[in-house]
Design a protein around this nucleic acid. Structure first.
Lengths: 204, 204
DNA sequence: CATCGATGGTACTGATCGGTAACAGCCATT
DNA sequence: AATGGCTGTTACCGATCAGTACCATCGATG
């Protein structure tokens, strides 16, 4: 008799919990989801959850840290898709984020939403959010500069605000609003922005 | 003996409740504030609160409706400050909103925050938020068009996203982030945007 | 087989919350 | 003075929530 383990090899509870947290926290909002609900959605119970996360706040922080890490991955993806072409990488990122923002299930940026929802400044999740957003800003400036635009900080600021505005406004003006034109707007911005004479800023 | 009513003529409880709701809802987030806390801050009690608002949701909706109404007022203010000069009105509004967003107590747009916090699509407050944001968008397009810019929808979309992005990103990247440059960015956008030949679109 | 760690299940605590009941006072009008 | 409406106060209900104690169970290792 073969030892039967025909179960679909359920991943360990920690992963299931984080997966459930992603879905519920994002869809319903962090404050509206109880740890009981997450444990149930993860097909486990509250006790096991608390064996992996010391508190709900820590779970929230872990959930956001996971999303932040995946967000970092998109930059590598863009670089891999258009190696050595920062301009194309920029547009790749913009296309990705605008596609993602206009999905029907989208409720904007989970990190930004968390900052709105968790008003207390001491919340451990806020550190995650702030660190991630700052890093995104810095990366964006670097990429715009690498692409050779003049006044890269200005372009980067503008793109950043457009993206953040598009993602948050989806939830108030709806999917037909200005956010729907994010990609076109940002591309026009890039197209009309002056570049330095292509003096090959390569550090080589 | 004169009838003594030396109390500072406290406004009626409904106004006090709405005032307390404004402060607490905005500062701590809607879901983090109990009706008890609002009643206490309004120097009254829960019973009186429920005599004026049938539920917390209704109170939230009233709170947002009040803010929306005041937001409408700023447009009249701009018109009064620069009558017949839509371009100046535009910059007046931008200056106002960016000043307001960079205040230390600012936590962004209360309406947008509410849309983030109240994920359930049936929430009565969402109707208030969506109606207000749509109206703001329409007003903005009209004002940009009135100012004679070509492709006014594009300019309006861009300004709208910049404003929304600035207000929401303050809460994640902080007051030193891209949002701090909102006014300068928007003004540069307007300065460099082409206008139709000044053919005096006055309807007179 | 025995052991041990990780997991699952149940039940519980203490606190908070939205909402209501019942009663007492206050003030303006008549 | 009497009335009636609005307000203040206390207490309560039922539900939910974060977090914990306790024990049963499973699976891998020795």
């Amino acid at each position: 008799m073969p030892r039967l383990k025909p179960q679909p090899a359920q991943p360990p509870p920690r992963e299931r919990i984080l997966q459930a947290a992603r879905e519920l926290f994002y869809r319903d909002g962090i404050n509206s989801v109880s740890v009981d609900a997450i444990a149930a959605a993860a097909d486990t119970n509250k006790m096991t959850l608390y064996r992996h996360f010391s508190s709900k706040n820590e779970l929230v922080a872990a959930y956001l840290a996971e999303l932040a890490a995946e967000g970092e991955g998109v930059w590598d993806e863009a670089r891999a898709a258009h190696p050595g072409d920062p301009d194309a990488q920029l547009r790749y990122l913009l296309r990705k984020v605008s596609q993602w923002a206009t999905q029907s299930t989208s409720r904007g940026c989970a990190l930004a939403n968390a900052a709105v929802e968790l008003a207390e400044r001491r919340h451990p999740a806020r550190r995650v959010v702030e660190a991630h957003k700052r890093k995104q800003c810095a990366r964006l400036v670097a990429l715009v500069r690498e692409a050779g635009y003049v006044r890269p900080e200005r372009i980067a600021d503008e793109i950043f605000l457009l993206v953040e505005g598009a993602r948050v406004s989806m939830q108030s003006v709806g999917r037909e609003g200005p956010g729907a034109r994010l990609y076109a707007l940002a591309c026009e911005l890039l197209d009309s922005a002056p570049k330095k004479k292509s003096l090959k800023a390569h550090t080589a």
